[in-house]
Amino acid sequence: MTTAAEERELLLNPVVPENVLHNTKTVTDIRSLTGSLFGVAAGILGLESYWGFIFYLVGSCVVSAFMVALNTGGRPERYFRGKSEIWTTEVVSGSSMAGFILTWTLFFGLLRV
């Protein structure tokens, strides 16, 4: 989409910034909680190197599918700026991945070393 078309779309359908922030914050909360949870699971299962990250990505996809189905009622474009935003927000950047690695290494170390 070009900039002009984007501006036109925003003029026709204005967006509530507080609600966008609120929704993004809800998704971020869920992501950081489930991220550290996947870390605990990966540590218990004893996953190493790439398998841990693959586990994390698969788990994030599952959580995104849950959010689309349960929180947005199958219509993510009603609550987010784009259709793909709920699938990508906070997955590889931010506190979610960091929390995953933190708890992964912690539980791996506690249970195996």
């Binding site: 204005p14 509530v16 609120h22 809800t26 869920i30 949870l37 699971a41 959580v63 849950f66 009603r78």
Partner: peptide
Amino acid sequence: SVFLLCVGIVLNNSQELKPISWS
């Protein structure tokens, strides 16, 4: 247990999203 926990966490936050379109 992780699968169920994910379901529980997502359900805890359901009904909380607000529509972003002004109308």
